[in-house]
């Protein structure tokens, strides 16, 4: 199979370092992965091409890069699939991270954020003689998160990190969830308090990009949502994010649809003048687009029937949350 691989390159040692595109024509086996193609280029055409790679089986996390614009593992991506009928594949370094050389990015900002969530088990109470007793279900649930290989694909394509480098990011927060949900960990309360701060769980915009690009099915965004639920359940309601969520729920339950005027008032507080004033420009921008919410909010017809359904749904979701809350016993 003949491929054209367009690689975004960067050589920091060039007299005037500038990113540029370089095209390689390369012949690979029909079953080849993008990594196979890049290795062939590096071995037979251009030894200066820098990339990280090792295991070839999607477990070491080295070869994450942007392939045709989206982050993924080169070793898990079939060349024939992404080349399509044109036979062209574009390959770039991951986004949201500084480039060191060619496809090699500096993950240090990301590692710093992982460190910031205190990613180690913190049991309280005496250490058991044997293992901690825990249910297999709890361990399997955690395995879904431990499947994360820290390749950085979600970090690369996170739309929040693009505008706010302070955000802890999907991978670090998924890792944080792994401890909060671990029945052996004893400091969930402290963790959730910490993760509720600026840059934490409430800064995700639920764009789903991390769920889409994760090569290991970790679904980081869903872990962030689970952290939000636990934070609220633990009483960490005094953040804009938590108040927004609760206000949303309350307003919808009340009238069957969102009262868009009250939502910001309830989220930020009726007396929080500086914040409300800061929202005025947004309110002004809604005018010409005819998106101004009506000051006379009316419930939907048959709102009582809706409210009954709403409460039933809440009960179901609360019941579903039960199993992971089982505590580890000392064995």
């Amino acid at each position: 199979m003949r491929l054209t691989v367009k690689v975004r390159r960067y050589n920091p040692e060039a007299p005037k370092p500038q990113p540029y595109w370089q095209e390689y024509a390369v012949e690979v086996e029909p079953a080849a992965t993008v990594l196979d193609a890049l290795i062939r280029i590096r071995e037979e055409i251009d030894e200066s091409l820098a990339l990280r790679c090792s295991c070839r089986s999607a477990i070491c996390g080295s070869c994450a890069m942007r392939i045709n614009g989206h982050a993924g593992l080169a070793c898990k991506t079939k060349a024939s699939v992404v080349a399509g009928s044109t036979g062209v594949i574009t390959v770039e370094p991951m986004g949201n991270l500084p480039v060191i050389k060619d496809l090699v990015v500096d993950l240090a900002p990301h590692w710093g954020k992982v460190q910031a969530v205190e990613p180690w088990l913190q049991p309280t109470g005496p250490e058991p003689q044997g293992e901690y007793l825990a249910s297999n279900e709890a361990m399997l649930h955690l395995a879904g998160v431990m499947n994360c290989i820290m390749c950085g694909a979600c970090v690369s394509d996170c739309t929040v990190l693009e505008v706010d480098p302070n955000f802890l990011g999907p991978a670090a927060l998924a890792k944080a969830y792994r401890f909060v949900a671990d029945p052996r960990d004893g400091v969930a309360r402290e963790r959730l308090s910490k993760y509720s701060a600026y840059g934490g769980i409430w800064d995700c915009t639920r764009c789903f990009e991390c769920v889409q690009v994760c090569p290991k099915g970790v679904a980081p965004m869903e872990r962030i949502m689970a952290l939000r639920e636990r934070a609220i359940a633990m009483g960490y309601k005094d953040t804009y994010g938590a108040r927004h969520t609760l206000a949303f729920e309350e307003l919808v339950e009340h009238s069957g649809r969102l009262d868009e005027l009250r939502l910001p008032l309830k989220t930020f507080g009726y007396t929080n003048l500086p914040k409300l004033i800061s929202l005025l420009p947004i309110a002004v921008r809604t005018l010409p687009k005819q998106k101004v919410p009506s000051p006379f909010h009316k419930p939907i017809p048959e709102v009582r029937k809706f409210q009954a359904t709403f409460r039933k749904a809440r009960q179901v979701s609360e019941n579903e949350r039960q199993p992971t809350a089982t505590q580890a016993k000392q064995g």
Binding site: L121, S135, M139
Partner: peptide, 8 residues
């Protein structure tokens, strides 16, 4: 005890 999630 360090935190490995061995199957049970």
């Amino acid at each position: 005890h360090m935190g490995v999630i061995f199957n049970r």
